[in-house]
Each structure stands twice: as structure tokens, then as C-alpha cells.
Design a protein around this nucleic acid. Sequence first.
DNA 1: GCAAAAGTGTTGGCTATACACCCATGT
DNA 2: ACATGGGTGTATAGCCAACACTTTTGC
Lengths: 226, 226
Amino acid sequence: MEDYYKKTKHLVAVDCVIFGYKKEQLHLLLYPRGFEPAKGKWSLMGGFLQDKESSDDSARRILKSTTGLMDVYLEQVAFFTNPLRDKAARVISLVYYALLKEDKYDETLVREHGAHWWPVNKLPDFIFDHEEMVRKSMEKLQLKASINLVGIELLPEMFTLQQLRNLYEAIFQKKLDPGNFRKKLLSTDMFEKLNIKNTKASKKGAYYYRVKVTSQNKSFDRLMKF
Amino acid sequence: MEDYYKKTKHLVAVDCVIFGYKKEQLHLLLYPRGFEPAKGKWSLMGGFLQDKESSDDSARRILKSTTGLMDVYLEQVAFFTNPLRDKAARVISLVYYALLKEDKYDETLVREHGAHWWPVNKLPDFIFDHEEMVRKSMEKLQLKASINLVGIELLPEMFTLQQLRNLYEAIFQKKLDPGNFRKKLLSTDMFEKLNIKNTKASKKGAYYYRVKVTSQNKSFDRLMKF
DNA sequence: GCAAAAGTGTTGGCTATACACCCATGT
DNA sequence: ACATGGGTGTATAGCCAACACTTTTGC
């Protein structure tokens, strides 16, 4: 066990499942693979883990270089280690998902990489095992959204309950009852009602809310079911 | 990205948090570190990921060599990548937890490795970040026990509801109401009542149950709260 | 006035928890 | 007979889904 130098070393990749919320739909930022094998299929943003770099730092470096964003919410998803998963070489993959605030990223930088936003309900063909990575990320995100409020990470600072509901509908890919959703979320006492109304979405106008500073990273009291 | 050969390679360890259920308490199989650094502290069972070996296979190889067991329930927990986590060298760790059936493992083999079973409520000092690995494993196990029946993996084929309740009490580290537990679990219709009684634990004797074959890997209908 | 979204209220069913109570039996 | 765990029943509280209903306002 102490003979570290005798052991096989491996290439370690960090792949990021980047969620963004655009046009009331959850999207993934993907880029097309330009070379064989699997040319033309779509791929997650990834890179190799470097010397003296934690995988968290690595993921942040990848996100910085592809979206320009520094402070991004990151969560571990899983590791993928099948020796044949990458046809070109034996590569271990460490997978994260990331949540990007609407329109805060650098669109030019994104385009530079040939990247494209795909709605999660109409995804293209993926290379290798990236489809499974995405599936597991969705499951993790849904679990997280049941325990914590994900509004902070994906919505602007001020939002109506309708916008928040749309976000949750996008995450769980199903319609939610407006009245019940409203009562459920407000019962957590995590929101602050503002004296401003959004009159764009309806004639009556809906009040904007803000997440209370004190409950930034708080859990719901119980596991919410959506 | 295609220049695989230029990238840094890393040592990749697979560490196993081995849960066993002994004497009505959840235990962890740990072994003492016999060399510096961190000599005398306790460590998870681990080994290095080899060439052409998936981390699942690697974990199974480690479990086979330390407990003699072939078919063990395994679940991914997380990866640990802090560059300074192992003082001797930069090592990525992939962590699994394993569930060992009571008394099915090879006690001689276990002793050979100097390993020791520690009850989860009185654990020793760990090396490096192994304590966090254990904590995350406990959380994952509790989550799993809320979604699936873990009795199959940790109990003998035949068990009384009292034994099952003790197991759940050990997993969640709290007392559960006997009557309510019974009703909750039986309501899932995953059990088959046998015509045999266990008369050791009580005078009246409790019927043995068995998990129905059809519901081996089934989920509870809802998330159970214990 | 009407449509459409905002927001409130009501109801029935299910689940969790606490706990009372009877059953069977070894000592 | 009584203590002990096995097993059943009941009462209460809280949550959730469905849906009726009221409010506001632009057209």
C-alpha cells in the first residue's frame, strides 16, 4: 500500500453537466464533438484534472473558460470508470452538475466554443456515456430541489411565484398546481414579499419576492414533494 | 482535448466503507494504519485502481481479499480529490459503501488483515479524510433505507419484524415504535409470512418473514420516514 | 363584460405519531 | 400471576392534491 510509485496512474477527466434556465425551460450547454471517434455527437464540457488541482477547482476552471462565470453552484454527481467508456484511451470521469443564472454567462465565449443550449426534454445524441451522466444529474437536481430551494441559483434576485413555479415545473418536467405550489413555498417562510409588481405576465400583476438572506442555504423543514 | 498523452496522470484509490450488522448494531470494518504518516489511526479498506479494471471491479476485488465475500451490495458514495488529502502522494479516492450480511464473511481473513469491527456510534480516529467518507456513507445509507428495503442485504433470509426494526434503528440511530414500524413495513406487501416462529427473543414467539422474490429490488411506494 | 392570471379557501384522503390494549407463554 | 415482547386498534395532527371561488385589470 505504501509503494505508491509502483501503481498504475490514470487520466482523470472532469465533466460538467451545465444547467441553465432559459425561456422557461431547463437547458443543457453542450458542444459538438469535432473529431473521431463519435464525431458529430454531443458532449458535456470537460477537461483533464491537472496536477495540484482539486476536481472542484478543475470544474470551476472549465466553467470559467467556457462561460466566463466564476461563482457557480456545483455539485458532485458520480464517477464513471468503465475501462472502455472512452474509445481513445482509458479515462476516469468525475461528473459535476452546475447551475447557471439566467443570462449571466458570456454568450460570446459560449459561441466561441461552438456550444449550444439544448432543452432537457429534447436532447441530442451524446458521445460515450454522457447520456447517463445527464440522467443522473437530473435525478440529483430533482432531489436537491426537493430539499433546498434552487431558485437562488437559477433565477434573478427578484422573482414572482409564477416564475419560481415555472422553474420547478422545468426541473420536474410536469405541471404543478399554482395555488398549492404558492402555499407550499410560502409556508417555508423563506421569502420576503417586495412592494413591486410584475405586470408583464398578467393583467392583475404579481408581487415580486426575494429569498431572505437568513435562509440562503437553508433546507426545507421536510422533504418537499413536487 | 485529443492529446491524451500530454495530460497528467493520477493515482486513483478505491476506498470501501464496509457496513456489517453485528449484535444489533451497525459496524464498520476498519484496519489500523501500521506506518507513518498517521500511524495508529484507522483506515477504510482500500486499494489502487488497476489497469483495465472498473472501480466496481476494484471495490469487489478489495472486498474479496479482505472478507472473502464475492457478492456484496455496493453503492457509489463520492469522490475525494483534494491534492493534499493524502500526505504521501497525490491520490484521488473513489468511495463506495458495502453492505455485508451478518456472519457470512471470512473471520480468519478479516483478522489476518488486523481489521476490526467498530460500532458506528463509537468510531476511532481516522486517517486523512476517511471520517468524511464515513459520514457521507451513513447519509447515503439512510437515504437508501428510506427508499428501498435494506433488510435483504444485511439480514439473514428469514427474520422477524423485531430484527428488521433493530436494523433500522441501527441505521437511523434512534428508537422506532414497534407497532407503527410493523404496520408501515407490512403495508408495503413486500413480505411473506412464514409458519415458523422465533421463540428466542420472546415468550410468545414472533413469526419469521421473508422478502418476496418479486420485490427483491423494488422501491417503497413512497419515501419512508423513519 | 370577459378573459386570464393572482391569490385564498375548503375538502377528503393519506401518513405519521403516540399510545392504549389484548395475546401468548416461560418462569 | 406476572413480566415480556408480539401484535392490533384508535385518535389526532399534519400534509397533499384537487378544485371551487374571489380579486384585479387590460382589452
